[in-house]
Simulated assay, not measured.
Amino acid sequence: MTPRHALLIDPVASDDDRGEFSDTLSAVDPAGPVLSLGELSAQRGDGVFESIGVVDGHPQEVTAHLERLAHSAALCDLPAPHLGQWRAAVAEIASRCPAGEYVIKLVLSRGVDQGPGPTAWVTASPAPDFSRVRRDGVRVVTLDRGVDSGASTRAPWLLLGAKTLSYAVNMAAIREAGRRGADDAVFVSSDGIVLEAPTASVIVRFGDRFVTPEPATGILHGTTQLSLFAYLAGRGFDVGYDTISVDRLRHADAGWLVSSVRLAAPIVAVDDHEIALDAALTASMTDYLLSPRD
């Protein structure tokens, strides 16, 4: 996704009591030289980020994304972001997005090596066309993440559950899925527990109950998953968190990969075990996720 718009943010302290932040936001050419070669986000992936879907100029689930940005920053020992300042940056760059689907990316980096403080910026890009996978679904394979389901509690320095810029493993997993003839992957723990996809949360239906893996296993607490659970609960379905084995995933009544930009992509096969596609429910999920949500 090539950015069409970009803003640099001069981060202020999280307890700054000002109400106006326009003087801390600077529009820059997203195709021009902006960041230093000493920037640790590029050298080490040392930073955190969020991706916010934008529909017809409306940024979706902003509060949930900002709260998760702050959570990731805390896990990585980064300065706490001022959520009012970041909200102002999101509003400013969203105002530059025309009709259609866009994605806003928020980045908070540790900054330049030996530098004075963090670097921060936001970009806005046209969203990829996910209409086919929303309609036809995805085939996934399960891949061992190499840690057990208790690793996040036992080894917090692994930063499991933080949305960091270190996405090389996630991209490698998607490439491995392609080599195995699938569209995407689902990570599982070394003790056989379903975790998450490289760039999405997993929702599974068993009868009239919809479940997702426990965030305590060291996965991102999905903003889209939370929103969909509220929607499904409003329709009278039972929703909750559960331990899901690989075998249960393969024999689910339905499943979805959900994320802020892809929205809800139905899972049609797990490790070549076919899963039914609920076209009507998926379409209603997509309609809901494309509606304005704060």
Score class of each variant (00 low, 15 high):
Ile93Leu: 00
Ser22Met: 14
Val246Glu: 09
Ile275Gln: 00
Ala172Asp: 14
Leu165Thr: 04
Gly178Cys: 06
Gly57Cys: 09
Ala89Met: 05
Val258Thr: 10
Ala200Gly: 03
Pro30Thr: 04
His82Cys: 14
Phe49Gln: 05
Gly161Phe: 05
Ala182Phe: 06
Ala182Val: 09
His273Cys: 14
Leu263Ser: 10
Thr282Arg: 02
Thr63Trp: 09
Leu7Gly: 00
Ala73His: 01
Leu143Tyr: 07
Ala197Leu: 06
Val55Thr: 09
Pro215Gly: 05
Ala276Ser: 13
Cys97Asp: 01
Ser227Asp: 14
Arg4Ile: 07
Pro59Cys: 10
Thr282Trp: 02
Gly234Val: 03
Gly240Ser: 11
Trp86Asn: 00
Pro11Asp: 07
Gly255Val: 03
Leu158Met: 13
Arg96Gln: 13
Val12Asn: 08
Leu78Cys: 02
Ala124His: 03
Val54Phe: 01
Ser189Ala: 09
Leu160Gly: 04
Asp242Asn: 12
Thr224Glu: 11
Asp10Glu: 11
Leu290Arg: 09
Val186Asn: 04
Gly115Glu: 06
Asp15Gln: 13
Ala200Thr: 03
Asp183Gln: 05
Gly100Asp: 02
Pro156Ser: 08
Asp184Leu: 09
Val202Asn: 00
Ala127Asn: 00
Val270Ser: 03
Gly222Phe: 01
Arg135Tyr: 12
Phe187Ser: 02
Val194Cys: 02
Ala172Gly: 11
Ile219Gly: 00
Thr164Lys: 04
Pro215His: 07
Ala233Ser: 15
Gln43Thr: 08
Met171Ile: 13
Gly47Arg: 00
Asp148Phe: 11
Gln43Ile: 15
Pro33Phe: 08
Asp136Ile: 08
Ile104Phe: 00
Pro292Leu: 05
Pro59Tyr: 07
